[in-house]
């Protein structure tokens, strides 16, 4: 450990929540942009809608609670929650899905527990789980990513689909050669294939995949990984949670793959599909709901990785980050209780 000694006067820069949140959102931008590229205008509409609704709900709740609105609203945490919910929702889901989700996140998960810093659960993930349980059809209908199928929905058509309840099929019905706009996500496709008795290699020949990775999804994950590394570089987060999530998911997936390569997804596919990278870097690292000490964070991340692998492989849902993060959020106080950093200078009693 290196101590840097500097002579006085020491300058303190006060890092404010609003700056951190803004920087986090900026780091998420590459991922969001790639997502918009693959899933079309719908993705960006969902993100903007969610952010707007999040800010509005936050302002409304704050004034209901008779708190000063502007100081809290300008800390951008509501906007970040909105962004994360918007990214998690399928691009062409109807507008009320994201509105219900965001209102639930801000009102119930965040403010009923006392606002920023007091919530037990990650608001975005709790909202996602609520939506997934309430509206399973809307929440699992993903547009086929660009490159895998015809999906060039114009901006106007996206708006119609999202806000007027026009079904995507109606918009594209007249097109020749149209064979469905929605497509199973890679993890979903693998789960269905395995349940029908196919092996992994046979599943990877489906049109969802290209070179062993899900079309589109791999680049989205790469972009979020890049954003996450930027956050590490900017010291917005520390590596422990993200590293532990990725490492434990990798180890679990490797063990499964080595034991039975026909029925278990390979580790790299696990890491670069679904919500792996955005969850590992942007969601699990939420300082409010995660464990606080270094060892605690490693445990917290590892727990998420193991849970995700178990649910993805043996559970009913294709992706599991929201569930895993909520369960780990529940365990965080428990982890903090048992993993206390030793005070400097004390030794473990013999």
């Amino acid at each position: 450990m290196a101590f840097k000694l500097a002579s006085s006067p020491h300058i303190n820069t006060s890092v404010q929540t609003s700056t951190i949140m803004l920087k986090v959102m900026a780091c998420a931008l590459p991922g969001v942009m790639v997502q918009c590229y693959f899933f079309g205008w719908g993705a960006i509409i969902q993100v903007l809608l969610s952010i707007a609704v999040a800010m509005a709900t936050e302002a409304a709740v704050l004034s209901l609670r008779k708190r000063p609105v502007w100081p809290t609203l300008s800390d951008n945490s509501a906007a970040l929650t909105g962004l994360l919910v918007g990214v998690a929702i399928p691009a062409l889901a109807p507008w009320w899905v994201s509105v219900i989700g965001v209102v639930f996140a801000i009102l119930v998960v965040k403010h009923l527990y006392g606002g920023l810093g007091n919530n037990i659960f990650n608001p975005a993930m709790a909202a996602y789980v609520m939506l997934l349980i309430s509206f399973p059809l809307q929440m699992t209908t993903w547009v086929a990513p660009a490159g895998a199928a015809l999906n060039d929905v114009s901006l106007l058509a996206s708006l119609q689909i999202i806000f007027q309840g026009v079904s995507p099929a109606e918009v594209l019905a007249y097109r020749a050669g149209f064979d469905g706009m929605s497509m199973a996500t890679p993890l979903d496709a693998i789960k269905t294939s395995l349940s029908t008795g196919l092996t992994i290699n046979e599943a990877l020949e489906k049109p969802t995949f290209e070179n062993g990775f899900g079309i589109g999804w791999v680049w989205i994950n790469v972009a979020y990984l890049f954003g996450g590394l930027c956050m590490l570089k900017l010291k917005l987060i520390r590596w422990h949670i993200s590293g532990a999530v990725i490492f434990s998911l990798f180890v679990c997936a490797s063990i499964g793959y080595l034991l039975s390569p026909d029925t278990h997804t390979g580790p790299l596919l696990h890491l670069f599909s679904g919500a792996t990278m955005i969850a590992a870097f942007f969601i699990a690292t939420d300082p409010v709901t995660a464990a606080t000490s270094v060892k605690g964070r490693l445990l917290f991340g590892a727990l998420i990785g193991v849970l995700v692998y178990s649910i993805r492989s043996f559970g009913g849902y294709p992706d599991a980050f929201a569930f895993a993060i909520l369960l780990a959020n529940l365990c965080a106080p428990f982890i903090d209780y048992y993993v206390k950093p030793r005070a400097y200078g004390h030794r473990a009693s013999r």
Partner: peptide, 15 residues
């Protein structure tokens, strides 16, 4: 078209 399942399931009752 789609019921709001959360409200109809026991967790919704708790909330």
């Amino acid at each position: 078209d789609t019921n709001f399942l959360l409200a109809m399931l026991p967790p919704g009752a708790f909330i």
